[in-house]
Design a binder for these strands. Structure first.
Lengths: 137, 137
DNA sequence: TCAAACCTTCTCATTGATGTGCAGGTCAAG
DNA sequence: CTTGACCTGCACATCAATGAGAAGGTTTGA
């Protein structure tokens, strides 16, 4: 498929797809006219990349990690170097740490929101006036 | 405490602490000579900030979220605006999504590492390797 | 008291990562 | 021929963080 289709199907901009190719995250064939021609699997791959970037992994790491996971489930063994294995182990640990931290903060925010709602309900039990205390930001 | 002490206790640079103050993430008193004087609670706060940034939250959001969590457990109600509440709900959801994605990727990497180790064990079966199937996380 | 070592202040500039805008040109279809 | 999708390449934007330099405060010991 061409870049416009891939952009639409992944919700990214064409520009960004070219950027990811420039960064070595995705590849493409070229048609005779020079247009990029993407494989079907690129859709999943781009979504995967978006998620990994959002999770805080730098492109440098994604470049190493991605070839190991063909699609988000299937696994391909491709004789990685010891260095790559160590990188993956490190990233797995970093992910685990991030998860723990995110869980703590998600819970803290949830608890806070519950407390706020309880306070609101107590402050205005009969009058539903949401902007009574609204001031600056 | 002064900035050097805080830097040492949080593992950040003095420069970064000034930057966080500039960004409105932390505050400080000033001594008569103009030196910053940090409260004890700043240690936790800075660690919290590091974690939230690492989790992918921008300073703009942290600035809103942080005052709601005095230390990583205690919660203070401070009459937030509806806008802030919506922001917090959004961030909580984004965190939950990030957690799900990180878990998927962490598991994928773990599985991959297991498979790689199995392949290595098969390639070199005479090497005594008692913990061949050791997996973590 | 002086001086050296160290800490702090502020400010301007820069880096690195992720991404976007845009100009100028090519290609293909109506 | 016009329109729209695509190409390359350069520049710009944003955000987090850092470097460097100049000036001044603090401490300690000769």
């Amino acid at each position: 498929m061409r870049i416009g289709t891939l952009a639409e199907r992944t919700g990214t901009s064409r520009r960004l797809l070219r950027y990811y190719e420039e960064q070595g995250l995705i590849g493409s064939q070229r048609s005779a006219n020079g247009y990029r021609d993407y494989a079907e699997s690129c859709v999943d791959k781009v979504i995967q990349i978006r998620g990994l970037l959002d999770a805080g992994l730098p492109t440098r790491v994604i470049r190493e990690v991605l070839p190991c996971m063909d699609t988000p489930r299937a696994i391909r063994i491709s004789a990685p170097t010891e260095e790559t294995i160590a990188l993956l182990e490190g990233e797995r640990d970093r992910m685990a740490e991030r998860i723990r931290f995110l869980e703590r903060n998600r819970d803290a925010i949830s608890e806070y929101l519950v407390a706020v709602r309880a306070a609101q309900a107590e402050a205005a039990p009969q009058t539903p006036n949401p902007s009574e205390a609204a001031v600056s930001a």
